[in-house]
């Protein structure tokens, strides 16, 4: 995916392939039917979401025709206590999840990268299991587990969210581990050895050499853990009690009853947060450049 036009002066890049060159046999992107097909696919992909967002600003109760711009549904959503409660729950869970899952994920990534040990292949297999198994299987497993161990359900507010948070950490830290490990692949271990030769302890080398190098990977992993948690519906649906509704679960129950602009407004808020967080994560996770092994 890397573009190898770095050495070409900017002005020349556009001229390398003349615009009106005859159509080559493999110039699929320049064929009208290919362009039409791709345009239609992208239109179908985006149109429903864009209409959903647009109609959260529409000054009409019915999501059908445009009657002018308004923010009244955001105001309504803001004054809907159960919706705000759900949103607060979601954010609280996501923040704690991010903190714990990032630490666990970084630890797991470092030790899997650094050590050889018997049964490592099996261990790595178990580690990616939360990523590959169908979400519903994990959801029912967490539900059965918390019911079986008699996890208290009537604790006061932030503590009643522990079961959901625990479940979120369990499925999101392997994602953090995968992202951080991808970053570690490009790490030059000689840097760590040099630090140790110069008298640094294991911890010092980890703290001053490895962690600073890993920082973009850690930030990307943390952002992904945040979005995964904020977005999760299936696993939360099985672990949530009547008092511990999160935003996606709330949206689900609202949508089952009716289609209202208020739901569109709540959805739009969630869309904006997750898209921004994921876009930031992608930026931090940008492919490792060659120079990185010389950075410190």
């Amino acid at each position: 995916m890397t573009v190898d036009t770095k050495d070409v002066p900017t002005g020349l890049r556009w001229r390398r392939a003349p615009r009106r060159a005859p159509l080559g046999p493999l110039d699929y992107t320049r064929r009208w039917w290919m362009r039409l097909l791709v345009a239609v696919t992208f239109l179908l992909l985006y149109a429903p979401i864009l209409t959903l967002v647009a109609f959260s600003f529409n000054d009409s109760r019915r999501n059908i025709v445009w009657r002018g711009f308004t923010l009244k549904y955001y105001e309504k959503a803001w004054n809907n206590d159960s919706l705000i409660d759900a949103f607060t729950n979601s954010l609280s869970i996501a923040v704690i999840n991010t903190a714990v899952a990032t630490v666990l994920g970084v630890l797991a990534a470092i030790f899997l990268w650094r050590f050889r040990f018997p049964g490592k292949a099996a261990y790595e297999g178990f580690m990616v299991l939360p990523i590959v198994i169908p979400e519903i299987c994990m959801g029912v497993a967490m539900m059965a587990f918390f019911a079986r161990v008699g996890w208290p359900t009537d604790l006061p507010w932030p503590f009643n969210l522990t079961s959901i948070t625990i479940a979120h950490i369990a499925f999101s830290f392997p994602f953090v581990a995968v992202i951080v490990r991808a970053r570690l692949v490009g790490f030059n271990r000689e840097l760590e050895d040099a630090a140790k030769d110069l008298g640094a302890s294991d911890w010092r080398a980890l703290k001053d050499i490895v962690l600073p190098y890993l920082k973009p990977g850690i930030v990307a992993g943390a952002l992904i853990a945040f979005t995964l948690s904020l977005d999760d519906f299936v696993i939360t649906f099985f672990t949530a009690g009547p008092d511990t509704i999160t935003l996606p679960v709330k949206i689900f129950s609202m949508v089952r009853f009716s289609v209202t602009p208020e739901v569109n407004a709540a959805s739009t808020v969630l869309i904006v947060i997750t898209v921004i967080a994921t876009a930031l994560a992608m930026r931090f996770q940008a492919p490792v450049r060659k120079l990185d092994s010389n950075e410190g």
């Binding site: 429903p48 979401i49 977005d231 519906f233 969630l270």
Partner: peptide, 15 residues
């Protein structure tokens, strides 16, 4: 579009 909550995308189809 894939970053957007799967539930919201399903809801968008209803409209």
């Amino acid at each position: 579009p894939f970053w957007i909550n799967i539930l919201i995308r399903t809801y968008a189809l209803i409209a």
